[in-house]
Design a protein around this nucleic acid. Structure first.
Lengths: 199, 199
DNA sequence: TAGACTTTATGTACTGAGTTCAACAATGCC
DNA sequence: GGCATTGTTGAACTCAGTACATAAAGTCTA
């Protein structure tokens, strides 16, 4: 997942996730997702088809490089969260804070490519699969953190999933909001609020 | 999506979604999902490979027949929901009630096959894709209903997604709970409660 | 400097999902 | 019987993803 540094020994890499990602995005813009084959991407990046699969497990994975960095930040924020008292409420607020911290750097200019392509995600099975896989990873992350802090499994799951739901909803609104969208964080905050007052 | 009745005219169908689904489940149990090809399923059902794709858009779709029936019930419940006052709260409760009504028939014996296969869904891209697609359909359904009832788009999205998150979390707990699990409904109710008290 | 070792790249061949399209089969209707 | 309609079938194809053996390009060590 993370970019592994070249150790010095062995044949130096001819490509990188970033290089392949750039080549892919160029081609997606030029020919669309379906009009772009893995062969095209590899050729554009100057490597062979197989090399692409050395860097990504699947064609659709290329969309998520930027967002996976955010997942890493979530992980870090959770690790740094001492989450004091093992009560449901404190832990619930814990994951919420961790999430807000992780997405805090996301400014108007940093809209991940994937967020500008919701129509694609909705219509292309490979992207649906990779999106689902991302959500599942996040869910596991948050859910386990809650359980470690004493929240009952069922409640942990519900709270984790619900938080992710809010982030997704917020991210969609944010991406759609155009160049003046500003930071993502307030969008997430109001999504959370919208679900809480719904009593 | 819905089973289209044979109109009387034309060549009568040699198969049906149900028949293919049964053949598929048998083979999944015998040889696993990956060990079962579309060819196998079609052969077991006594038709050709192409005929399978006349009934399902993809191999993974076969998992969701039972759950798609629930989606139809959600749709019906929403249609029958006069959802009186166009206020956020009333509409929010509206989709919640519609969802609870739609899943009310689900008893201990009716655990959809797909719910017993979460490990599969997590590891097989085709199933991730079809799951994602189901969630997206549900989300659109609920979200549009809220917007029609005067809820702001952003809030509608957040509430709809969050409700789906609760149902998914609840369904997982329910499926894992074993033969004495009882009805799904209370699981959903407590998932919703768990997210609301998380303030 | 000649290997030995390590890491990455490449080529080939394969499986299987999903698509396209034309031909064919079975039914009701006139 | 002819005809429209609906459904099935076969063949050929594209492309993602996998497996595996081999080659290339470096570093390290004797």
């Amino acid at each position: 997942m993370t970019t592994t540094r070249h150790s010095g020994r062995g044949r130096p890499p001819a490509a990188s996730r970033e290089l392949l990602q750039e080549a892919a995005f160029e081609l997606f813009v030029e020919n669309g997702y379906l009009g772009t084959t893995v062969d095209h991407i590899a050729t554009r990046a100057g490597v062979s088809r197989n090399t692409f699969f050395n860097y990504f497990d699947a064609k659709g994975e290329v969309f998520w490089v930027e967002l996976d960095a955010t997942t890493e930040r979530v992980k870090a924020a959770l690790a740094g969260d001492s989450s004091v008292a093992p009560t449901t409420n404190a832990a619930g607020i814990g994951i919420r804070q961790a999430m807000l911290t992780a997405i805090a750097p996301l400014q108007s200019e940093h809209v991940p490519f994937v967020l500008t392509q919701y129509d694609l995600i909705g219509s292309i099975t490979e992207l649906q699969a990779s999106a689902m896989s991302r959500f599942a990873t996040q869910a596991r992350l948050l859910s386990e953190h809650l359980r470690r802090n004493g929240v009952a499994p069922a409640a942990a799951r519900a709270q984790a999933y619900s938080l992710i739901a809010c982030v997704i909803a917020a991210a969609q609104e944010w991406a759609q909001a155009g160049p003046l969208r500003g930071r993502l964080e307030p969008y997430v905050q109001s999504a959370i609020d919208a679900t809480l007052i719904a009593e």
